[in-house]
Design a protein around this nucleic acid. Structure first.
Length: 422
RNA sequence: GGAGAGGUGGCCGAGUGGUCGAAGGCGCACGCCUGGAAAGCGUGUAUCCGUCACAAGCGGAUCAAGGGUUCGAAUCCCUUUCUCUCCGCCA
């Protein structure tokens, strides 16, 4: 959530800047401001009442000790009254604080000044394009057909044993996927990211910490018997490593990378856009995460985008980088760059990475802070990005590198695959 | 899954109803000492909320979490949760 201080100090600007998201936040911001001041009043009343009863309790104790039990008995009544009052105030405070919190979670992050206005992905600003996005020769197959022909991914088998969106990778297909994962992790390692293998299920607190709950309830698979959620991305467990943490300033930046399987329900999408590997319920992804000093986060964002871009270049895939417009920007992000690879056979761009700076939005929820050199505890900035999501990379790689006999493996992957073509 | 023992500050560890946010130690920071360092000595060292200038000061909360008993709880009771030990099961 955003810093409530921003609303106390300059609610007008908050409203103004949220307009970039096509959001009219005026009403919500006003209600936050009201709830905030009410909460503070309530807090004051409660504190005063407790202070009073504390003094009283001490006096009663003294009276008992000095044998003035009679006098003490009289004060007990007063004490009981204060206790009752404190209880009522506490309950009201809890209600107000709960309301305030609920309202705050409904406010998205404030977009960075560079975020362009716009509604849909069509309004995103392409900031970079590399490689040639050429139409594939007419005989080129989309990956789902290619996979069938080469017998490397079996979609029907996955549907049989689980359901749609759970492909079965097979033979060189499985090996290629594993090669990509290893390649991505090695590259992240070289770039200074520490590898993490996180749990694939998280509890509700963690899901809340990164904003999957309550905003995206229903996106995640929920294991009811144990009240756990299958992670939609390793961002969730990895970022939650920092929940309720105060880092030392010199520990920043923290750079973590994690490979994990990801699970998404993605309810209600069908058709061409989700065929084959384009959109799955279960997929693999390597994620990079950074926790930085507030002044260094945009430098880190650039570094992360560049890292992903280098991966794509090494894989020899044509790609472009888009700065997301206000309407396309995720709830928690201040600025996001999407990286998309060109899929010749499908004739379209596939999103393979999304790199975001959340500034302090996540760290407020997570209570992630660092101790500044002046000894103050300040919220750190968090960033994350895919580096990379496997299925679409696999799709683009297969489609773009196909020739008559099969598929050519890019040079960088050969040490990992052990073969140079499929 | 069964039985038992426990969860106190960055760590270890006192503390079984009163002035305890909490002794002591370690660690850490700063200072003294030193040519420099170690040792030694000294000082300081949790988080959040409110008031307020996001200062000082003051008030409140927090000893796993939640609830209860009591004038008063880290200390007593209940529930939950986690850890450890033993047994069972098991990749």
């Amino acid at each position: 959530m955003i810093d409530i201080q921003l609303i106390r100090e300059n609610s007008r600007e908050v409203i103004e800047r949220l307009k970039v998201r096509n959001m009219d936040a005026a009403g919500l911001v006003e209600r936050v401001a009201e709830a905030d001041s009410e909460r503070r009043q309530m807090q004051k009343q409660l504190d005063d009442t407790l202070a009073e009863s504390k003094v009283l309790a001490r006096r009663i104790g003294e009276l008992f000790k000095s044998g003035k039990g009679q006098e003490a008995e009289g004060l007990k009544q007063e004490s009981g009254r204060l206790k009752q009052q404190a209880k009522v105030l506490q309950e009201r405070l809890d209600v107000v604080a709960g309301e305030l919190n609920e309202l705050m979670t409904r406010l998205p992050n404030i977009p960075h000044p560079s975020v362009p206005a716009g509604n849909t992905e069509a309004d995103n600003e392409i900031v970079r394009e590399e490689g040639k996005a050429e139409a594939a020769p007419p005989e080129a197959l989309p990956h789902w057909e290619l996979c069938k022909k080469l017998d490397i991914i079996d979609f029907e088998a996955g549907t049989k044993i689980t359901g749609a969106g759970f492909p079965v990778y097979k033979g060189k297909g499985a090996r290629l996927q594993r090669a990509l994962i290893a390649f991505f992790l090695d590259e992240a390692d070289k770039a200074g990211y520490t590898e993490i293998q996180p749990p694939l299920m998280v509890n509700a607190d963690s899901a809340y910490g990164t904003g999957q709950l309550p905003d995206k309830d229903g996106q995640m698979y929920h294991v009811q018997s144990d009240d756990l959620y299958l992670i939609p991305t390793s961002e969730v467990p990895v970022t939650n490593l920092f929940r309720d943490t105060i880092l030392k300033e010199d520990e920043l930046p923290v750079k973590y990378t994690a490979y994990s399987v990801c699970f998404r329900r993605e309810a209600g999408s069908y058709g061409k856009d989700v065929r084959g590997l384009n959109r799955l319920h279960q997929f693999d992804k390597v994620e990079i995460v950074q926790v930085t000093h507030p002044e260094k986060s945009y430098q880190a964002l650039k570094e992360m985008v560049d890292h992903v871009a280098v991966l794509l270049k090494k894989l020899e895939l044509p790609f472009r980088v888009a700065r997301l417009c206000g309407g396309d920007l995720g709830f928690a992000a201040a600025l996001t760059f999407d990286l998309e690879v060109w899929s010749g056979a499908q004739g379209r761009w596939l999103e393979v990475s999304s790199v975001s700076n959340f500034e302090t939005y996540q760290s407020h929820r997570l209570k992630l802070r660092y101790r500044s050199s002046e000894g103050r505890n300040l919220h750190a900035h968090t960033l994350n990005g895919s580096a990379l999501a496997l299925p679409r990379i696999l799709a683009a790689l297969l489609e773009n590198n196909q020739d008559k006999g099969g598929v050519i493996i890019p040079e960088v992957l050969r040490p990992y695959t052990g073969f140079d073509r499929i």
